[in-house]
Design a protein around this nucleic acid. Sequence first.
DNA 1: GTCTATACCTAGATAGAC
DNA 2: GTCTATCTAGGTATAGAC
Lengths: 204, 204
Amino acid sequence: MTDTPPRTRIQQRNRETILGAALEVFSQHGFRGATLDQIAQAAGLSKPNLLYYFPSKEAMHEALLAGLMDTWLAPLRALDPGGEPLDEILGYVHRKLLLSRDFPRESRLFANEILQGAERIRPTLEGELKTLVDQTAAVISGWAREGRIAPVDPYHLIFSIWALTQHYADFDVQVRAVLGPGKDDPFDGADRYLATLFSRLLTP
Amino acid sequence: MTDTPPRTRIQQRNRETILGAALEVFSQHGFRGATLDQIAQAAGLSKPNLLYYFPSKEAMHEALLAGLMDTWLAPLRALDPGGEPLDEILGYVHRKLLLSRDFPRESRLFANEILQGAERIRPTLEGELKTLVDQTAAVISGWAREGRIAPVDPYHLIFSIWALTQHYADFDVQVRAVLGPGKDDPFDGADRYLATLFSRLLTP
DNA sequence: GTCTATACCTAGATAGAC
DNA sequence: GTCTATCTAGGTATAGAC
């Protein structure tokens, strides 16, 4: 998607440093809220130097979003239509939760984008994402028809998995505020809770 | 919370017009992304006139957030510890979903705020919200101990209700992109799905 | 490749006429 | 109370030296 023409090692390294800093700042403040000053400081580079590597602030943002989509859809692609239905779905939930735990900034970048209308990624949502979800929904419906899981609306099942797993990354501040300090990592509790929730829903 | 000193009718009306316009713009673009020009246009007033009614952009935002919290917590407060446990919880889910359907802008305003660190409302989260959730969690734990619902982590149960209901407002764009045009209202499907989901989880 | 200096614009807020 | 005009800060991007 993003072309990555041959570069020197130092160029590669700086590009990655900048994208890391940009992810940090964009995910916390949104596109408009982020400033090049903040990104430059986080990257340890000067502001003009950022613009030597990327033509504009917009270009940094696009590079991040383009790289993100594949990572984000990987767990869903990994769902095996030939596997044991309940295991496959619980495995998907687990992998998606780990993704939220390990990549919260990516999750928030994505959430910011959707929340604010998804202007930049709507084509991907209506194309690549919809196609993948349609395929997966067909698999799940098949499992339900065969009686291997309880009858369920496959689309809302998938939405609920997204909502629940991403909530722990995107609303992390609220989760921690409510749980208070000194509790276990919210993700541990979530992992157990979600396994129970979907087992009960889907066991025939 | 927000003091509303005696005003003329026209003042009241203009304040409300402005807040409505501000909600529209803030919820779509976030605080930083919103501009006074946009709000002024949405309100049909001039930019300086906005600042006659509110001392600053920040003040508009605070007025919205202050008014929002009560509305947002009302369905949880309405949960009756003396009621039939499953009915009470399913009723809460239903009311919360209706709130998302009927007040999506408020939901997104709140989501933007949490997502970006909740600087302005963290005290409320750690105070009023935590207290209310702690109380409700105690009630739910009691029900579980008495065997009136299945054993469940009450905090994660509440988080999951928030995540699922708000998802349909906050990620509306994504939901509609995936479902495609011409389908039923996502909220109808969600209502049925969530009732099933929580019935199965909580039935002893 | 990286810096300093700066151009240029957008956007929040104010002054003052009406 | 509402407007036009304007001030000012901050932010993106560029020029040009090193």
